[in-house]
């Protein structure tokens, strides 16, 4: 166990392309042990073999071991968000989905949003979280525990599935009182035009009763600002 972690650490320290022999020498581990550990870590996809089959690099799964660091968005993107804040009386938040979670990168200082940890852990309840789930091939892999946060939280997988269909079709997610009973949010996605990947979400949060209204102009305004964010974030 300790040796496996040491091998993983050595691949990070030495950089991609490091060979089994080099790792064995650096850690003073017996060769057979090193090879077995490397094969184990490759089997579990924490490491990958490079195309020459000699060198190793970190696999995508290793990302789960690190605390994801999301850099602050560029000033131009924050200016777009600030512009929207000037036009509406509700809270405006920008979130990144790059780490596979909801991470607020520009929360509204005048209208503090819900706790980061709550948003990250319960994507089924929040509007931003539903954008993320609707983008997954199988959302159940990300939202295993449909816990009720308020009496309005959708906890039935079938109902959530139907709502996520609507989110995908209309490119807008909406929740009323699902995270906090008195608040609601409308969120729209920002996609990378080259890969189609979901990169960010822009949300408007206000009183739950008001969010439940059609708000056609607000949604249009959100989409307009989200479109302006595309070249800045993608």
């Amino acid at each position: 166990m300790r040796s496996a972690l040491a091998v993983l650490e050595e691949v990070v320290a030495a950089g991609p392309g490091v060979t089994a022999k080099e790792i064995s020498a650096a850690l003073k581990l017996p060769q057979a042990t090193t090879y077995r550990l490397l094969n184990l870590l490759v089997g579990e996809e924490y490491l990958v073999r490079l195309p020459d089959l000699r060198g190793f690099a970190l696999g995508r799964r290793a990302a789960r071991l690190a605390l994801p660091v999301v850099p602050t968005p560029p000033a131009a993107a924050r200016a777009v968000v600030e512009h929207l804040r000037g036009q509406v009386r509700w809270g405006v938040h920008l979130a990144s989905f790059r780490t596979g979670q909801v991470t607020l990168v520009d929360p509204d200082p005048d209208h503090p949003p819900s706790d980061d940890v709550v948003l990250a852990r319960h994507p089924h309840a929040s509007a931003l979280g539903m954008l993320l789930l609707a983008d997954q091939p199988d959302w159940r892999a990300l939202a295993r525990d449909l816990r009720p946060l308020t009496e309005h939280t959708v906890t039935d997988p079938g109902e959530l599935d139907a709502r996520l269909e609507v989110v995908s079709a209309q490119r807008v997610a909406r929740q009323c009182g699902q995270v906090r009973a008195d608040r609601g949010c409308i969120a729209v996605p920002v996609h990378d035009p080259a890969t189609g990947a979901l990169v960010a979400g822009l949300a408007l949060c206000g009183p739950a009763a008001r969010v439940a209204e059609p708000n056609t102009e607000l949604v249009a305004l959100l989409h307009e600002h989200a479109d302006r964010l595309v070249p800045l974030l993608a």
């Binding site: 950089g15 994801p68 780490t99």
Partner: peptide, 24 residues
């Protein structure tokens, strides 16, 4: 989903140009 820039780049990223030979 995971982009390079979400993590601090690990040292010697271009060691032997190891990742440059990867196909898409």
């Amino acid at each position: 989903m995971y982009a390079a820039s979400t993590f601090p780049p690990y040292p010697a990223l271009m060691r032997h140009g190891a990742l440059s030979g990867l196909r898409h």
